[in-house]
Design a protein around this nucleic acid. Structure first.
Length: 210
DNA sequence: GCCCAGGTGTTTC
DNA sequence: GAAACACATGGG
């Protein structure tokens, strides 16, 4: 059954890789900035972009909101899609301002907040859930390309299963616990990176036989 | 030089 | 509606 399989997968991954210590960031705000900048991008490139913002002492909602779009784009160049992402980050910053700041953001109903995040142009489902889980410590499961690939390989989902379906699988079959969801998603990324790129990698995968 | 990376929005059939 | 396309740097 799905429930037992999902727990089994988690246990195997945790035993193989241990805690992943996500999200590597200093503040909630930094997590949220990273969530937007890391869209379809290697994390190492995002770290460079965040480092350049920090170097200029610009890592606050107010300062970034005042920063001209072109300047922001040049500072985050290393993470790719820099023009698009500068615009998306601006949209998100305006949203934070409208909500009265980062702290107030997470005081409202989580499901309402999720719906509002999705209305921000540039924030899709994965980014919204990453913000809710990794910045807000709220139990929303983050689904990404790795998650789908791994579940598909283990015949737990159809190839064209959509985001909501996959998320529901985790949220309906596991205890809704932010720490669990945090670790689980990070572990899926870990195993996906190292063992799930090609079929041939499956031979050494910790999930072999599951 | 080619492929991919912790996606999303827009355009096109 | 879904499929195709645009967005772009840096590491393997």
């Amino acid at each position: 059954m799905t429930k037992n399989t999902l727990v089994l997968i988690y246990n195997k991954l945790y035993k193989s890789f241990g805690p992943q210590h996500w999200w590597p960031a200093k503040t909630k705000f930094e997590v949220m900035v990273g969530a937007i900048l890391t869209q379809n991008t290697a994390w190492g490139n995002v770290e460079k972009a965040i480092a350049s913002l920090r170097k200029e002492n610009l890592l606050s909602p107010q300062k970034l909101l005042r920063l001209p779009l072109r300047h922001m784009a040049s500072l985050i160049k290393s993470c790719g899609y820099y023009n698009v992402k500068a615009k998306r980050l601006k949209n998100f910053l305006k949203f934070i301002k409208k909500k009265g700041g980062v702290a107030k953001l997470f005081k409202e109903d989580p499901f309402v907040l999720r719906r509002e995040l999705l209305e921000v142009n540039g924030v899709g489902e994965e980014t919204a859930d990453s913000i809710l889980l990794y910045a807000g410590n709220l139990p929303f499961f983050v689904v990404d390309a790795y998650t789908k690939r791994i579940l598909y390989r283990h015949n737990l989902i159809d190839k064209k299963a959509d985001y909501a379906h996959v998320q529901k699988l985790f949220m309906d079959n596991l205890k809704r616990d932010a720490d669990l969801f945090n670790e689980y998603h990070a572990l899926l990324v870990k195993v996906g990176k190292h063992y799930c790129k090609k079929k041939a990698d499956c031979g050494n995968c910790p999930l072999k036989g599951v």
